[in-house]
Structure formats: C-alpha cells, structure tokens
Simulated assay, not measured.
Amino acid sequence: MSSGLKISPQLRQKIDRELDLREKILWIGQPAPSLMILTGGTLAIALFAVPWTAFSVFWMWAALGFQLPNLSRGFQPQYLFAMFGLPFFLIGIGMLLSPFWSWRQAFQTVYIITNQRAITFEGAGKTTIRSYYPQQFNNLYRKEGNNGIGDVIIAAETTRDSDGDRQRRELGFFNIRDPREVEAILKKLVQEKR
C-alpha cells in the first residue's frame, strides 16, 4: 500500500480480507482531507451553526437573567427554563464540528481498483464496502476541479425519500487526486474484461 495513505490497522485488515487471492491492486487512494471540509454542505452547515449556537447561548443567558447561577440560593425555576436551551446549544456545537467530522471521515475511506473490480471502504468501526464490477461501469464519468482533484462516478442509485420523491445518488471515488488517471485505469479494466 502507498506510504502516503493513513489507513487504520482495522481498516487494513478489512481490505486484506476483502481481496481475493487472484486480485492484484492496480490503484489505491483516499479522499483529499482538506476538500472534505468544503463538500457535502459541511461548510454551509457550519456557517448556519454560528447564529444557531449564538442564539442558543443568548437564550440560556437571558433565561438566567443575564447573570451566572447562584446555587447558594438553591435551585431556581429560571435554571430549568435555561436548561431548555441546552439541547439547541449541543446541536449547534455538533453542526460547528461538521467540517471536522468530514475531515476525519476522509481518513476512514479507502478507494481501491484491482484487476477484477473497484472497491470503496467507508468507515473504520462499522465499514460499508461496495464493489463495482466492470460491467457496471456503463456510465463512468469524471468531475474535475482546477486543482486536479475531483470525482470519478462509477454508478448511480435511485431511491425514494420519505415523501416518495425520487432521489439520485452518485457512487464512486470522491475528492481524489488525479481523477483522470483513475478514470483511465477503470476504462482499461472494462476493455480487458470484454
């Protein structure tokens, strides 16, 4: 495996168990961690969290009468009222940390192309493993940014949300370095399997 990858021992064991004896790794990579912060709406969520969290702090502070609690007088009713703002504050902290969770997720994701298939491993504890075989590469395409980092879309799935509306989700390798090279390897794999 590449020395630049930061793969946990648990995830590496899962990768080793997943690969067949006749499979040879042609390419292995991970998402660029710095870009995971800016994708999936994490930046928008974090920006929304600023006023959300500030308002929850203001709410609790106002409920306390703009003063620190004095517990020497015992438990006052306004303390309970202030505590209603605590869940909103914790949600705000969670939203503020969403870029960190996305950055961390990049180190728990590994993309592999073997001489048989493409595989995604997502997560370290409970890992989601998806295999894509060459016959599934019919709609293979690439999205590339100016910085040379992009996505290689291997497949798409259509599901229905709770309202019954159709949702399309792209599957593949996201925020990878040199997506052109990855796309070329996948296209070559398709040609070899015909």
Rank of each mutant, 00 (worst) to 15 (best):
I149E: 07
E170S: 05
N70G: 13
K188H: 10
L11H: 03
R169M: 05
G148Y: 02
Q30P: 02
L86I: 09
R194V: 07
G85D: 02
E18Q: 15
N138Y: 08
L186W: 01
G148R: 02
S2A: 10
E170R: 03
E122L: 14
I93L: 08
R17H: 13
V57L: 14
F58W: 13
F107K: 14
R166N: 13
G125P: 02
V50F: 07
Q30S: 02
R160A: 04
A118M: 14
L43T: 07
I185W: 04
T127G: 04
M83K: 03
F66W: 15
F66I: 09
L71I: 13
P9L: 03
Y111H: 13
M95L: 05
G92F: 00
I112L: 14
P31F: 04
Q136M: 15
K188V: 08
G29C: 01
D16M: 07
P179K: 05
I45Q: 11
R22P: 02
G40W: 09
P31A: 01
G164T: 06
Q116T: 07
N139L: 06
A124P: 00
Q76P: 00
I91D: 06
Y141S: 08
F174Y: 03
A156L: 06
L90A: 10
P77K: 14
V110W: 04
T42F: 14
S34R: 11
F88R: 11
Y133E: 07
A156C: 06
P33G: 14
F75K: 12
I185Y: 00
S2W: 05
F137C: 08
Q191K: 11
T120H: 11
Y132S: 07
I129M: 07
A118G: 13
S131G: 09
Q76S: 01
P33Y: 11
Q167M: 14
L68F: 11
I154Q: 08
R177V: 07
E183A: 01
M36W: 01
N146E: 12
E183Y: 04
G41F: 15
K187T: 12
L97E: 00
